[in-house]
């Protein structure tokens, strides 16, 4: 999930490629054909997709951390099991996505190294802290809600392995948003303190969630190629508006107030939200969000402390292969 904010397509390099091949490729895209790993593709298409899919994968993996922060503190055993299953799903999604990116020729190790070196981005949303249990409800409801808006069109993305990964992700993720909303319903039907906790979480997450869809269309320079290649089918603002329109009635049902006093409903029924603070977005993407350093530190620690385990597994595999060869020779 969560790639929209990071979409930046490579500029077209058609001039450097075989013009006829490029034209043929575009014709296939226009005819809604899926591109498969061994097919010829423009280098810029490959590069754009590798970056987008791997950033999407990094987001899933880093996204395990804010929610994982509450697995050991979930308030009931039922919630604990559901949250653990959900965070585990995110790991699975990261894994599917790394595999999709690998079909383009990069190894998972390279992709992960780029992330750990701070060279690859992940969604800005995961650089915010989860302070209370209501944050877990809010993330499921809003962050997963936003992710679903973004991911459903990606199921029809022109690159086959990415589209297939997205289909699997969307299927599995259908419980995530419901899980979150159910937490919110329970809080909002609970004590004053619980309701206040829910409102506080909505207040803190609302604007960062709107930022997940990426810069406004007017300021987004790189969408053209992605749109032409049918990696991206809706603009940032279109998806953001769709999300807001879907979410407002859900907040009303909960009796919660969206922290945007200037929000109004227009004649067509669309909820018009106020200006988003893009300075904050840029700062968070640049590494200055409240949790960027903690997230990176946690991933580096897991990777670093896992090194000897991966080495052991590799060493054993090599020994086993040698033994099998020796046995076969006898």
């Amino acid at each position: 999930m969560y790639t929209q904010a990071l979409n930046t397509a490579e500029t077209d390099d058609r001039g450097l490629e075989d013009v006829a091949k490029a034209a043929q490729f575009q014709a296939r895209i226009d005819a809604e054909e899926r591109i498969e790993p061994n097919d010829w593709m423009p280098a810029a298409y490959r590069k754009t997709l590798t970056r987008q899919i791997s950033q999407h994968a990094h987001s899933e993996i880093v996204g395990m951390l804010p929610e994982g922060n509450w697995i050991t503190r979930a308030p009931t055993l039922r919630r604990k099991a559901a949250l653990l299953a959900k965070v585990q799903d995110e790991c699975g999604h990261g894994l599917y996505l790394y595999a999709a990116a690998e079909t383009l020729g990069a190894s998972r190790e390279e992709l992960v190294d780029a992330m750990l070196a701070g060279k690859a981005k992940y969604s800005s949303i995961f650089n915010y802290p989860t302070l209370t249990w209501a944050d877990i409800g809010t993330i499921g409801w809003l962050v997963d809600g936003a992710a679903i808006m973004n991911q459903i069109p990606l199921c029809r993305c022109s690159y086959g392995p990415y589209a297939r990964a997205m289909i699997r992700v969307c299927k599995e993720e259908s419980f995530h948003q419901r899980q979150g909303y159910e937490i919110m319903v329970t809080l909002c039907r609970g004590s004053d303190e619980q309701k206040a906790m829910a409102q506080d979480a909505l207040n803190r997450w609302w604007w960062p969630v709107l930022m997940m869809f990426g810069p406004p269309d007017a300021a987004s320079q790189h969408s053209d190629a992605s749109t032409k290649w049918k990696i991206k089918r809706f603009s940032n603002d279109e998806l953001r508006q769709k999300f807001v329109d879907a979410t407002v009635p859900q907040a009303q049902y909960l009796g919660l107030t969206i922290p945007d006093p200037g929000m109004t409903q227009d004649a067509d029924g669309h909820w018009r939200y106020s200006e988003i603070d893009w300075t904050e977005f840029k700062q968070v993407l640049a590494g200055n969000g409240p949790c960027n350093r903690d997230r990176m530190a946690a991933r580096r620690k897991a990777h670093g402390e896992g090194a000897w385990v991966r080495e052991a597994a590799a060493a054993y595999a090599a020994k086993r292969a040698r033994r099998q060869t020796a046995q076969a020779a006898e």
């Binding site: 595999a99 690998e102 998972r108 699997r168 599995e172 597994a313 054993y316 595999a317």
Partner: peptide, 23 residues
């Protein structure tokens, strides 16, 4: 159904079970 990383065949089979048959 997809792919995964594992050091050898036994671990790959286990990982496949844990990743691709959770439901």
């Amino acid at each position: 159904v997809g792919s995964l990383h594992a050091s050898d065949a036994t671990m790959a089979l286990q990982a496949a079970r844990d990743i691709y048959t959770r439901r």
